[in-house]
Design a binder for these strands. Sequence first.
DNA 1: ACGATCTGACACGAGGGAGTGTCAATATGG
DNA 2: CCATATTGACACTCCCTCGTGTCAGATCGT
Lengths: 202, 202
Amino acid sequence: MPQTRRTYRGMSAEERQAERRKQLLAAGLELFGTRGITATRVDDICAEAGLTKRYFYENFSSLDELLLAVVEDVLADLTARVVPVIASSGWRNPRPMLSTFIGAMLDDPRLVRLLVIETHSGALVRQRHQFIERAIDVWLEAAPDRDRDPSLLQTQRLLAHAYAGAVGEVAVAWASGRITMSAEEIIDHLERIFRRIAPQAG
Amino acid sequence: MPQTRRTYRGMSAEERQAERRKQLLAAGLELFGTRGITATRVDDICAEAGLTKRYFYENFSSLDELLLAVVEDVLADLTARVVPVIASSGWRNPRPMLSTFIGAMLDDPRLVRLLVIETHSGALVRQRHQFIERAIDVWLEAAPDRDRDPSLLQTQRLLAHAYAGAVGEVAVAWASGRITMSAEEIIDHLERIFRRIAPQAG
DNA sequence: ACGATCTGACACGAGGGAGTGTCAATATGG
DNA sequence: CCATATTGACACTCCCTCGTGTCAGATCGT
């Protein structure tokens, strides 16, 4: 083990490690988001990142740990984009929020693969669940008469799941070229579906 | 290689092989539908079926081949249940069809796992795609003014995908205990969503 | 310039699963 | 009862991947 920490290429030891971590996260997003999780090996990640296994295990103890970090990163980035849009456009007009969220996925097919397809099995089900639950909570918080009728709350939870599934499936179909529309048109349709599904919304 | 075919336990060679194939298919549905595809090994299938690898490779050349056969079987069984319901109840009333199809999944969580979760990746995407496309075709065939407006056809394809995703996600949420409702209530809600999403339907 | 640290390429053993082969035990037809 | 088909258990090899170790060369502090 090293006795002193020196600077290399104008970067401190911590900066270099953080840089390598970023490269590994980027490689993870690329490979997990294209060829998929099960088809991705540690050596593939290293090759994609331009690093060696030494630095992989410096930052992550396993592929699963990298995977969780990648998804966490992506979700944090998405929420960071959506939150200010909600704050500025309000709740009565869901279009900006839907446009931001869905548009981000349509712009990057890797997000579709990672967030919709791959999160169905393995260690990501927990994150998928938590994300949907948070979205439901945020949504219910904006509902006018929440916790008035408990069965209505269950209904809205079901509707939220249904809409999440609808968006995901459409995104998958679009990403695989089975729907020939512009992103704007797709967002239009999904917004319309949202208005039809969500009770007393917009 | 055997020179003559003898009967064992009152069954001919072909009957015995067919019996073993059934056992393997049942084992596949059970394991693929519970622990998942990637967590299932050839030896697991054999143990579940009460057979040895010899008879696995007698019927299938790989796990993927068994998997395709299992899904094909399940889908054939589902369509065999749905088709007569459609024939007897007609198109204007989608409830019986939805009830049959969705009810089958709610009755057997393995179907949810196999058809909704596991079909997102690997060799099953093709079958998932084909099944949805067939459902879309069947549905469009019943639409009053099909192929009148090509853009309307694209719209209906999108709506079909959206509804398929909605049903799948709700089924997953129900199978994992995140929605506490009776199957009847869930079918009610999904039928209502269907009526709201599908244009001029029901 | 020199010693120590950092880096990258590769070697190595461990572990698990696929696919095949072996062999004794069992059941059958004659 | 005997020869043979059939079966089940298991050993065996091969290959892939993980995680760690090794070592020469590059880079920095002094």
